[in-house]
Amino acid sequence: MYEFSYVKPASLDEAAQLLANHDDAKPLSGGMTLIPTLKQRLAQPSHLIDIAALTELRGIEVTAGQLIIGAATRHIEVATSMTVRTALPALAALASTIGDPQVRNRGTLGGSVANNDPNADYPAAVLALGATVHTQRRAIAADDFFQGVFTTAIEEGELITRIAFPLPTRAAYAKFPHPASGFAMTGVFVAETGGRVRVAVTGAGPGVFRWREAEAALADRFAAESIEALVVDPSGLNADIHAPAEYRANLMKVLASRALRAILNSSEGAVA
């Protein structure tokens, strides 16, 4: 770790001001990615602006058919919130599978989505549910937000404040966890919202993406068999020492089928 200054602002405005004033400042939320990066000396920020406790970034509520969650809400809070478990059980279930208990107790929704790790779980939910990412400046549709590996529409000094999830008719998430980290080696989120089916895949490709072939097949017939009939081209998918691209291509079908079975076998969506 290199030396840096730690600052804990009292308000979102102050946080934004600090970020604007210091070119090399970074916002710190749960720190589940940032702190290990600092420890390995892969980053050298001048200031860490701790936004985890800002009241503007907290809170879980359902209004006007949307579930709205503050950016600094920790994974464990999403996983155990009665509001989330009632309104969007698939999201609560997803949060309960992130990393390990230590990560869930520190990591936050906004941190995960802003970081856009290609193996993170939340981006699959945000994209499949067609959520809206709110910052202190604007609202960004999920389809415009994720722009590839660790890249998003977020600009310098911009902070995610909350994420609004439209409530789906039915939804489920299925993942194959990395055996050590708990990240998704591949994860598939299937959601039907307002009569439209969206399928988002994380872990398998360079950043979260919508699986359009699956969406079309499920629009025809909402059943696991529709997925099993698809052919997934592994070219362009991720390959590493744990799994070649072909293995991930297979996982996409297996996990999408499991998500569907979970939806169809239960009255409410759940994690497969």
């Binding site: 990395h178 055996p179 050590a180 980290s181 020492i241 744990h242």
Partner: peptide, 15 residues
């Protein structure tokens, strides 16, 4: 290629 416990996998209690 496996010089961390993220890549060199040990058995954990959950398995």
């Amino acid at each position: 290629l496996t010089t961390t416990f993220a890549d060199y996998l040990l058995t954990t209690a959950t398995e």
